[in-house]
Design a protein around this nucleic acid. Structure first.
Lengths: 342, 342
DNA sequence: CTGTTAGCGCCTTCAG
DNA sequence: CTGAAGGCGCTAACAG
C-alpha cells in the first residue's frame, strides 16, 4: 500500500532466467524472434510479478509517446461528446488522448495547456478553434508537433496540418431556406458572440441564406447573452408578420426561446418556428420538440485522428484535402412542422 | 516542421557555458543555489534555443509524475462539469489531470483505462463509482497508487483512500418531505437503473423519505429507460389523487416528464410536481422551471484533490473522514411552487 | 555556488 | 534465438 518500487523488466528477466532484452522483445513486440518456450517463461514471470510497463521509460527511449493532446473550450455538451468520440478513435489507433479544457475561449489558458502538452512530447495535437492568434500559435507549435484543428477555418499551412470543420454555415443557410419554405415572414438569428469563430460561421451562413433565399424578408441578428427572451420575443412578434422563424446558436439557446414562447403562449410553429443546432438531448426531449442539426461525432472524430495518423505514417488513407467540411443533417421536429397528431 | 530533435538541457548548458546540473537547477528549482548571473545566462540560453523540459525524462528520473488519473463514466453534463473543476483544482496544485471516459459503466473499459493510467505511473487516481467489483479493483490498484472515489460508497480501506460522495440519498429524502408539504397525494421516483450506485442512493433516500414523512402516501418506483412518459403519466394521474409528486433521476429525466406533462396539458404544479437533480442548464431554462438540487462542483473537486494531496504529503490539511458527504442544495422553481406572477 | 557522476526503466542495434 | 551495451533527457547526491 506504499509506493516504493514497481517491478521492472530487470526483475522479470531475472525471474524468467533471460536477459532484459529478451523480456523487452517478448513483452512489447509479440515475441517475434523468440522461442515459444522463452515467451512462455517471460510471460509467466511478468504475470506473477505483476509487471507493468513504464510508459515514461518507453517513451523516452524511443522518443515516441503514442499520446495525442486535445484542447477544447470546455467539456460539457458538444465538447464532452466530441472528446469521448475522439478518445475512442485514438484508442482504437493505439494512442492515448490527453484532454484539456481551456475554460471557455481563454488564450492564456490555451497557451498554458499547449505548453504542458508539448512538454509531454505528445505525438500530435487536436485543438478546437483556437482563440490564440496565428502568430502566437505558430511560435509555440512550430516545434514540429503536427496540429489538426477542429472548427478552425483558414489556418496557415505552416501551423496546422489541416482542419475538420462542421458545416455550420451551410446548416444556417439551409435553415433560412427551410424557414422561408415553411412560410416564415421574418427571420432572426440568435447567436453567441462569446463563441468566436463558430458563431461567425453561423452568421455567415445566415447572411448567405438571407441573400439567396430571403432577400425580401425582414431579418435581424441578436446575441443570446444577457438577452431577456420574453421581452425580446414579444417585441419581435409585434414588429413582424408571423410566423417568425428563428435560428438559434445551439439547442440551449433554442430551449430558452422555446420556454419563453411557451410562457407567452405563443403558438409553435404557427406563430413562431425555431431551429437549433447540435441535436442535443434537449432538442429531442423538449416540448414541442426542437428541429435541429445533428452532428456526426464519430465521423468528425475519425477524420481528425486519421489526419494525424496519416502524418505519423501509420495508417495509409489519403490525407487529401486540408480542410474537411463535415455536413450536419437536419432533424425536423415540431418546432418547424405542424404536429402530426392533434 | 519535421519532428527530429527537441533541444535538451545539454544544448542549453553548452550555450550558456555551464553544466547541465546547473541548467536543471535553474530551470526546475527556481535557481535556488545559483548566482543571479548564472540564472540569467541559463534562462536566456533556454529562451533563445526554445528549450522545453521533457516531462518523461523528468518523471522517470524522480519517479514522480505530477499526474493524476481520472476515470469517469462519460464526459457529458455532470461528468464533464466535474472533470473541468477537477482539472482546475489539479492544476492549481501543480498536477496534470488525465481524463478518461469508460463509455458508461463498462467494467472492461474501466479496467483498461486503469491499466493505462498505472502504466503512466500516475501519482494518484480519482474514479467515479467504479463499476468493477472490489476484488477486481484491488488486484489492479494494490500497486500502491492512492485512489479516491467520487460517489463510491463503502469501499474497503485497503483499496481506496476515501471517497467524496454527493448527498443524493438525503436530497431524495428531503424531496419526499417537500413534496408532501406541497400537498402531494402520491409520490413517484423515476430512476435509471443503468447508473448503478448513484441510482441506488436515490432509491434509498426516496424510500427513507417515504417511511419517515409519507408512510401513508401511495408511492411507486419506476425506471426511466424505455418508459413511455405520456402513457405512464396519464395512467399515473388516473390511478392516484392529485397532485402527484415526482422525483426524477436527474434533470434530463425531469425534462422528459415535463414535456410529456405539457403535451398532455397537465397543470404544473397543481396536478403534477417535479423535482430533478443536478440543477442543469435544462432545469433553469425549461418552462416551467424545474426545481432541482444543485451540485457544489468546486467543493467536490477540491475535496477529492485534497485527499490525494494530503496523501502525497504536500499540502497540510487534515484528511479526517474517509468518506466525505457533500450536501446538495435545493433550488426551487415553478415545478413545485405556484408561479409568482399570473 | 557549480560540475561530476550515477542512475530512472526501457528500447535497440550489434555481436555471439 | 539471445545477451551485452549504449543511450533517451533529466535529477539528485556528492564532491570540488
Amino acid at each position: 500500500m506504499s509506493k516504493p518500487k514497481q517491478v521492472t523488466i530487470v526483475e522479470v528477466a531475472a525471474a524468467a532466467g533471460v536477459s532484459i532484452a529478451t523480456v523487452s522483445n517478448v513483452l512489447n513486440r509479440g515475441g517475434i524472434r523468440s522461442s515459444k518456450e522463452t515467451i512462455r517463461k517471460v510471460e509467466l514471470a511478468a504475470e506473477q510479478l505483476g509487471y507493468r510497463r513504464n510508459t515514461m521509460a518507453a517513451g523516452l527511449s524511443r522518443s515516441k509517446t503514442y499520446e495525442i493532446g486535445l484542447i477544447l473550450p470546455g467539456l460539457t455538451n458538444y465538447y464532452g461528446e466530441l472528446a469521448e468520440h475522439l478518445q475512442i478513435e485514438a484508442h482504437n489507433a493505439g494512442y492515448h488522448l490527453s484532454v484539456f479544457s481551456s475554460g471557455g475561449f481563454d488564450p492564456d489558458i490555451e497557451r498554458r495547456n499547449l505548453e504542458v502538452l508539448l512538454q509531454r512530447r505528445v505525438d500530435g495535437l487536436i485543438c478546437h478553434g483556437l482563440a490564440m492568434g496565428f502568430e502566437s500559435t505558430r511560435s509555440i507549435v512550430n516545434s514540429g508537433t503536427p496540429l489538426v484543428l477542429i472548427n478552425g477555418w483558414n489556418w496557415p499551412e505552416d501551423i496546422a496540418l489541416g482542419a475538420v470543420n462542421l458545416g455550420f454555415a451551410e446548416a444556417c443557410k439551409q435553415s433560412t431556406k427551410l424557414l422561408v419554405e415553411r412560410g416564415c415572414k421574418a427571420l432572426c438569428y440568435v447567436g453567441s458572440k462569446g463563441s468566436k469563430v463558430i458563431d461567425e460561421q453561423r452568421r455567415k451562413g445566415f447572411n448567405a441564406g438571407i441573400r439567396q433565399y430571403a432577400s425580401d424578408v425582414i431579418h435581424e441578428i441578436v446575441d443570446a447573452k444577457d438577452l431577456d427572451m420574453e421581452a425580446f420575443l414579444s417585441s419581435l412578434l409585434q414588429r413582424h408578420a408571423m410566423p417568425v422563424g428563428m435560428i438559434a446558436f445551439d439547442d440551449h439557446v433554442a430551449l430558452r426561446l422555446l420556454s419563453a414562447a411557451n410562457k407567452l403562449r405563443i403558438a409553435i410553429p404557427s406563430q413562431l418556428q425555431i431551429i437549433g443546432i447540435n441535436n442535443d438531448y434537449i432538442a429531442k426531449q423538449s416540448y414541442p420538440g426542437i428541429s435541429s442539426w445533428d452532428i456526426p461525432y464519430s465521423y468528425q472524430a475519425q477524420s481528425a485522428i486519421n489526419k494525424l495518423l496519416h502524418k505519423f505514417g501509420n495508417k495509409a488513407e489519403s490525407g487529401e484535402e486540408r480542410e474537411i467540411e463535415v455536413p450536419l443533417t437536419f432533424i425536423e421536429r415540431e418546432s418547424t412542422k405542424s404536429y402530426k397528431t392533434e
